[in-house]
């Protein structure tokens, strides 16, 4: 199941590279094609988001510069996509059965990003053709969300009711976001994007994919990442509960009895 998503991710990335490579060849004299990384340099403000007891969210700033090549001018478009770790979600639909509202249908989203933010300098529809946007997975509507449909795995049309409901609920909870004004230009070729990580954000590795479009085609792609992890006390508690459930359970149970006893002594009303 994860493999499907991975394969498709690789495929789209590979096609992105191909397009970029072809563009590079077409635009430059033979032999002078620079490495792709030179065209786009991206920096993430915080490679590690550390969660402490006072953690209530973080702000990640992504800076980037798309180098201009000889003879190139004209404006560029930037799309920043941040994808959190993949998790499986189930979307339930309630319907009325004999006067009662019950969970009647469900659809499972396999390895869907638990966090997904898409920021761009203007609506993606104005940047490139629908086909290109689809291939590059630009925007919430075009991000591949694999569903388990019976024995198969597939993404469905963007207006599928389960998909729409899933994206809507994830957006309402602050996990998914699409901001067509989230990328601002610091210069003609330098940009920044601010990504708010909510306190409830899932833990793990977040992939930052920056795609630059020019003349309605993909110009450059950059892939980087940052991690969101617990540290200190929070990490120790979580590790303890994972490592030795019995001992952790006994400790919590004994602790609760101690608190109950103390509470009785301190707030005794009789």
């Amino acid at each position: 199941m994860g493999k499907g998503a991975l394969a498709q991710g690789i495929a789209s990335r590979a096609s992105g590279m191909m397009v970029a490579g072809l563009l590079a060849l077409a635009a430059l004299p033979a032999g002078a094609a620079p490495a792709r990384a030179d065209r786009l340099v991206v920096s993430v403000s915080q490679p590690q988001v550390r969660i402490t007891s006072s953690f209530a969210g973080a702000e990640i700033v992504i800076f980037g510069v798309a180098e201009a090549q000889d003879g190139e001018d004209g404006s560029i478009d930037v799309v920043v996509t941040v994808r959190g770790p993949g998790e499986s979600f189930t979307t339930w639909r309630k319907s009325r059965v004999l006067g009662l509202w019950v969970n009647s249908d469900r659809r499972t989203f396999v390895e869907a990003p638990a966090f997904l933010a898409v920021l761009s300098n203007r609506p993606a529809e104005q940047m490139a053709s629908p086909e290109t946007l689809r291939v590059e997975q630009v925007g919430l509507a075009r991000n591949i969300l694999l569903q388990r449909v019976g024995p198969d795995f597939a993404d469905v049309v963007p207006n599928d009711p389960f998909r729409t409901a899933f994206v809507r609920i994830q957006t309402a909870q602050g996990f998914y976001r699409e901001d067509p004004g989230g990328v601002t230009f610091l210069g003609p070729r330098a940009f920044r994007a601010d990504v708010a990580i909510p306190g409830t954000a899932p833990l793990g590795r977040y992939a930052v994919v920056v795609k630059v479009f020019r003349n309605n085609a993909l110009y450059a792609t950059s892939l980087s990442s940052f991690d969101v992890n617990k540290t200190g006390f929070e990490q120790k508690i979580a590790e303890f509960s994972q490592r030795d459930g019995w001992l952790y359970g006994f400790a919590v149970a004994l602790g609760s009895l101690a608190v109950g006893f103390m509470g009785n002594l301190l707030f005794r009303r009789d």
């Binding site: 509960s241 019995w246 359970g249 919590v252 602790g255 509470g263 005794r268």
Partner: peptide, 27 residues
């Protein structure tokens, strides 16, 4: 103890904050 062992879903910090209020209220 059973929840901690079987599911690993007992949050000690949450339980502790709840309990401070709970023991007072119970009195």
């Amino acid at each position: 103890v059973l929840h901690a062992e079987a599911n690993g879903t007992v949050d000690a910090v949450l339980a502790f904050v709840l309990m401070i209020g709970g023991t007072m209220g119970a009195q």
